[in-house]
Amino acid sequence: MENSKKISRRKFLSLSLLGVGGVALISLNPFSKSTSSNWRFFTNDEGVLVDALAEQIIPTDESMGARDAGATNFIDKQLMGPYIRYQETYRKGLKAIQETCKTNFKKSFEALEWEEQTKFLQSMEAGKIEGSNWEKGFDKEFFELIRSHTMQSFYGSPRHGGNKNNVSYKMMRLDYPVIIGQNRYKV
C-alpha cells in the first residue's frame, strides 16, 4: 500500500509540468482495476452508478448534494485504504444493482426516473429485492453500507475527499474551521 502512494517529487513535478498531473498519478496506481478509469478502485461505469446512488441518499436541494460534494471520490479513496475490506462487497453489490435494473426495467439504475430510483433503494433498504444476485439479506446490507459511507463523505471532514468546501457544515450553520482559541491550519 505504502509504495503505491509514493511518487517521487521530481516525477510529480515533471508530470504536472506536462499538465497531466492528476490523471497521471491515478493511472500510475498499480491497484487501479483499469488504467482507463478516472477512479482508484471503481470503473468509470461504477463511478456513474455510485454518483447516482449518493445523489439519492443526500440529494441536491438549495445546497449541494452528496454527488457534487465528492461522495464517489470519498468512497473510492477509502476503498483503497481503510475500507479495503469492502472492495468485493462494492464490486458485487454495484453489479447486482445494475443487473437487477436491466432485468426489471431494461435500463441501468442511473437511467431510471428519480422516483423509480428512490423506490428501488427503498426496496433495498427493506430487504425486498429479489433475484439471483441477492443472497439473503445482501440487499439490505449493501444499502446500509453505501448509506453510511455516503453520510460519512458528506458530513465528515473534507480531508477525506467529500464534503467539498465544508458544504455540509455551512448548511448546518456550523462555523468551520473552529475560530475560538488556538486556531490551526486545516488540511
Partner: peptide
C-alpha cells in the same frame, strides 16, 4: 434515514 427529508432535518 436518507433522502431529501433526512438532509433537511440535518439542516
Amino acid at each position: 434515514r436518507w433522502g431529501a427529508e433526512h438532509k433537511d432535518f440535518q439542516r
